[in-house]
Design a protein around this nucleic acid. Structure first.
Lengths: 340, 340
DNA sequence: ATGAAAGCGCTAACAA
DNA sequence: TTGTTAGCGCTTTCAT
């Protein structure tokens, strides 16, 4: 690979002139002729600035890490796209990482920030990883912004408006005339699950509806969790006529379980979920969902990190605009006669 | 962040001794006492080797890039896990990248390899990106291994045994007694689609079955493509009694479309797909599928790159072991009476 | 307007 | 066994 020295030799100028021209130094006073010779030489040699050299000198990598617990979630895609778009517009590159049992958060942070691989990072903890344990990990050389999570004493987070999302979902069922509305939620330790629970309870309370014992399950966000939740709910008496599922993947599982148990959706049970993705369009019946703004969250998260890096601004963000949006498909309907 | 110099000062030794100890230099003859003092000092200062410094000196990053067109495919997860496991075992870090319209392959390669960010990379092209255009991009400073793709004159690729996978799927339908078997495939330009087509045709020919005009659609691997394919197939006369779908996402869409068009699966139409994922368990009916070995492919891809980097070995791999595996669920059955 | 030179953190060849 | 030193590619201050 060609270095600055190679380009300088070819253009017949000094290394520093080449550096000034190729890195668009603003205060560089370079004659047009020299500039042209340099640019030409660089192109001929297909010069590319060496990442390590630049990073070593400037103590900056122009890289932002995005660390997620599970990358194969249709929702992560939107998030990543938003983050990448925002990063690219500011001249940064995204480095996608994964955190799991084998590479715990502390290890990933040490590797990315401790070794100087990134200038900052966006971190989403896996459900069940207590934010409590990561306290001092957040006070590092580079800013860490938490996604859908807060940590006492740590400023720098971005979250969706989960409360509103769950409230919209619950209200939709209430408006259809349901009164026995259950909630299938994520683990109790999950930050988003707690907020979605608040949205659900707020809407129920505002409508003067009770939440009977057992109407809230908190088993997790995956398809098998949704299946298990439905089995549990249908043993209750009276059984719910509608259910708010806090996550689209769990809803897909719940719907499949309903088929198997011969519970007609939406005739006997209405199902709505928080989160939308292509899978929701391809269930049967197609899932009514509340679309959450993952793309916007991705952009906001990177903006939050960059504002910290470049302007020293500390901030907690909640994505209010655009707001969560109800997408009505076919898994919700009025409740069965008997209960009205 | 602490540097080698800091550690050296604290331990009262020279920088090079510290370097030797902390990077486990094999031929280093260091007294136990010194070694202990150094290790202690490093721990107290929470020393981490600076990535840029090390990379600049050694011209190695110990990073492998994994660049995929779309990371939110349940199948990519397995692939990534395999790649990461293999990389970690060899002391390498994975850098996940994405290639799409905004950051075309050439741009991504230039950035990762041209700027020296990775020591090698695994690249999967998006369907529809002609491999032809990437010729000289592959002759770079670092090895590029293609996933599910080959390029004339380029050695270094890893592929699944698509032919066998599609053959197994087709044979399953044949064994059930089907004779009018259609195939819903990916785009004609797709490498995997071509190979799966071969598997399908081989099985059909071996069984002495014809492939009537129109029985092969090649619209793509996404859910809407599967829907469109089904609509097209059902206008044919005679219509197929079974269909091999080349991808699980397309199969999910096809199944939803079948519901909507009131085509009973598997009573009137059997559906089997190549690829398995959690979504296949949660359709209705649950999808019979041929599981492909994505995890193994991920491991093999990284091994291929590392063998190239560390031993100079050039190789094209096809994952034969473990072989594709039939997972029978409920979307396949014997054909309807009339056709037997 | 251009060049010389120092130094970022690290490794390794060489010296002691 | 341990230390000194050069240099990887780059940016930037200081000279000219």
């Amino acid at each position: 690979m060609a270095t600055l020295g190679d380009v300088a030799a070819r253009a017949g100028v000094s290394i520093s002139s080449v550096s000034r021209v190729l890195s668009n130094h603003p205060a560089a006073r370079i004659s047009e002729a020299t500039r042209r010779r340099i640019v030409e030489a660089a192109e001929e040699l297909r010069y590319r600035p060496n990442f390590a050299g630049r990073a070593l000198k400037s103590a900056r990598t122009q890289v932002i890490g995005l660390v997620l617990p599970d990358l194969t979630n249709a929702l992560s895609t939107d998030l990543m796209h938003g983050a990448e778009d925002e990063a690219r517009e500011h001249g940064y590159t995204m480095l996608l990482g994964r955190s799991d049992a084998l590479s715990p958060v502390s290890e990933v942070i040490a590797r990315l920030i401790g070794e100087g691989r990134v200038d900052g990072m966006v971190l989403q903890l896996a459900d069940g990883v207590p934010a409590a344990g990561i306290g001092d990990l957040l006070d590092t050389a580079a800013p860490v912004v938490l996604l859908n999570e807060t940590h006492p004493g740590h400023v720098g987070s971005v979250a969706l408006d989960d409360v509103t999302g769950a409230r919209i979902a619950t209200q939709h069922l209430i408006e259809l005339g349901h009164e026995r509305i259950a909630m299938v939620n994520g683990l109790p330790s999950s930050f988003t699950a707690q907020r979605r629970r608040t949205g659900y309870r707020t809407a129920m309370k505002a409508a003067g509806l009770r939440v009977p014992r057992g109407y809230e399950t908190r088993l997790g966000y995956f398809a098998p969790d949704g299946r298990a939740a439905l089995r549990r709910l249908m043993t209750l008496s009276p059984a719910p006529t509608a259910v708010v599922v806090a996550n689209v993947n769990a809803a897909v599982g719940l719907l499949a379980e309903a088929r198997q148990a011969r519970i007609a959706v939406p005739r006997r049970l209405s199902v709505i979920c928080v989160h939308d993705s292509w899978t929701a369009e391809n269930t049967w019946p197609p899932l009514t969902a509340v679309q959450m703004q993952f793309y916007a969250m991705g952009r906001a998260a990177v903006r939050n990190v960059l504002d910290r890096i470049e302007n020293g601004v500390l901030r907690d963000d909640v994505i209010l605009d655009p707001p969560p949006q109800l997408i009505v498909r076919n898994s919700t309907a009025r409740p069965p006669r008997a209960t009205r």
